[in-house]
Design a protein around this nucleic acid. Structure first.
Lengths: 351, 351
DNA sequence: GTGAAAGCGCTAACAT
DNA sequence: ATGTTAGCGCTTTCAC
């Protein structure tokens, strides 16, 4: 392995100058810089990450913690993060804390989780951290502030930390208002179930958005029009089977808390011989890659952009900018496709 | 930050002993060991990753290179890798080399790719590397062997490197033979398109498996029964529309090179009023999470297990075991669900 | 089984 | 603009 001294010798300068030249510091004359660069290239020299980190205290590596790595949303966010980080010359160390695998609630005594906070993050392997949909308890927040490294959270709020999050309440309201504007009055909701409440009560916020949009036009959310599912296509399918099979209700539209559940709803409607949107309108939230294929109307939340934005903030903080604790709302956008339309004439006249 | 000297002081031993005790070395008396552990706990001490790496040459970090991070297969492999690595106390640094974003073919001059091999991997940030579906050229293979770190490839073969791979030819043959055994004689194939040939010619191998299975029973693969698509549901849907719309052919079954394309085929058949498997049988390859929901018959390739297995091999090599260059076949399994059945009676009598 | 001491390879004052 | 030097915090011979 070639080390810095050799490069210094070949270039006829000191190791300090080599270090400066290669780090792109301004205080190096152009001539020297190019001689050093030539020598480094000649010798195929690459700085040792550990030596550099030890001496400088910087790793050029960012940790990312996600609750799931096999769900579309998190993967999209991760993709955005990875791209931006790579472009900035940073590595990305991936940590996974599956709340469904016991990495969730029982915080104080969850070994995986403790280990992440007590060991992995404190080994000094990362310069900063991005926490996606992680609700942290007091102790964890303290660990984070104790290591004194920039942290940005996607999903929030998190006290003392800069976070980005979607206004789930407003997003849901927008989706339901789209249906109301089309004339729907019996709007069912497929909410995320308990297991996902860990993410800052996302299911509850979206459910409340549904309720509020309805009361906005003088309607009350009918509990029998509410079903919960696990955010998957299969879950949405089952929930819709229940909704459409119940003779006591007759929803003309379904608002699902995720695109995957909405797609499940579309498939269920079709299997029951109901046309979408002729007999039933369906809307989701996400901007999932499949929503275009299925012609699903949705509220896009641009997860990849979320990841990119988080990195941007982090890089600023690493550049020395002061963090601005608090929560920033993320952009979203209603994308109307073919799964929503006016309610069937029968329903309108009946109401 | 607490450092090792403080722990040594508190425990009344030298820093060398603290290092040994905490690293679990055998040459420490039980009494000393527990005193050191207590002191470390008391002081909330965690070793500095960079100092440790610099002194020992080991990072306890593994690099993983994937071509895509937003496709089901790679995410599943990644999940398996991440879990196993975390359990073994290793971190995982994620590198992404998108062949579709110009990170593919033009190897010698692709900056992203060069940078990964020339810089990132040589900075000494990782102890080992897992390359998923990466076909490496001579120069890259040399870089890898030059850094003299364990490497295992998923997808292969790669000269001089230990690889794991699916026997795509056999897997495809099995899928088609399943259809043949049910009595099908007109079997279409939706192959992966050119863009994916980069992965060790996976599309070609699967297509050849289709051809060979057919010739095994004296049939010839009809070129008009072959379509290509991009491995997505939408792609499979379109391809199937073409296949079923062409009046000159009348396939009774479709073998798709991936589950997502197979699901697209099922949806297309349904939209055209053909029942699956009544009018058309469909089989895929993957074991995708959606295949169960759609009742898709498939050949499962257990991607998560692939990831776990790769880590297992790596850890052995890291433990000092000699690598065994060469390729190892991965397990697969035919999973019969409801998308395949005998061909319609009309087709059978017509043949 | 434990300690002393010599690095690991680089960066950052400080000096010039 | 460049060189000198003192670490960064740990691990690992080598002694004992």
């Amino acid at each position: 392995m070639t080390k810095i001294q050799k490069v210094a010798d070949l270039a006829g300068v000191s190791t300090a100058t080599v270090s400066r030249a290669l780090a792109g510091k301004p205080s190096v004359s152009p001539a020297t810089r190019s001689r050093v660069e030539a020598a480094a290239r000649e010798l195929d020299y690459v700085v040792s990450a550990s030596a550099s980190s030890l001496a400088s205290g910087k790793t050029r590596n960012v940790g990312v913690v996600v609750p799931f790595i096999d769900s579309w949303f998190y993967v999209s966010v991760l993709k955005g993060i990875q791209r931006s980080l790579a472009d900035a010359g940073y590595d990305l160390t991936l940590y996974h804390l599956d709340p469904h695998a016991g990495d969730g609630q029982p915080r104080p005594d969850n070994p995986r989780r403790r280990r992440l906070f007590d060991e992995f993050l404190r080994r000094g392997r990362v310069d900063a951290l991005i926490a996606v949909s992680l609700e942290l308890d007091r102790a964890e927040l303290e660990s984070l502030t104790a290591i004194n490294k920039p942290v940005v959270g996607i999903g929030g709020p998190l006290p003392g930390i800069q976070t980005l999050s979607l206004d789930d309440h407003e997003v849901a309201k927008l989706a339901v208002e789209h249906l109301l504007a089309l004339g729907h009055r019996s709007i069912a909701h497929i909410a995320g179930d308990q297991d996902f409440e860990i993410d800052f009560h996302l299911p509850a916020h979206r459910r409340e958005g549904w309720e509020d949009a309805l009361s906005g036009v003088g309607l009350t959310a009918d509990p029998s029009l509410l079903r919960t599912a696990d955010f998957t296509i299969a879950g949405g399918y089952d929930a819709t089977l229940q909704l459409l099979g119940d003779p006591r209700i007759s929803p003309t539209a379904v608002f699902a808390a995720s695109d995957e559940m909405a797609i499940g709803a579309m498939l269920a409607a079709r299997d029951l011989g109901r046309s979408v949107p002729g007999d039933l309108s369906v809307i989701g939230i996400d901007g999932h890659e499949l929503s275009d294929f299925f012609g699903l109307t949705t509220v896009d939340q641009f997860p990849e952009v979320q990841g990119r934005h988080a990195v941007e903030i982090l890089l600023h903080q690493l550049d020395g900018d002061r963090p601005e604790p608090g929560n920033e709302d993320l952009p979203y956008e209603l994308v109307v496709r073919k799964s929503t339309g006016p309610p069937p004439a029968a329903a309108v006249s009946a109401s």
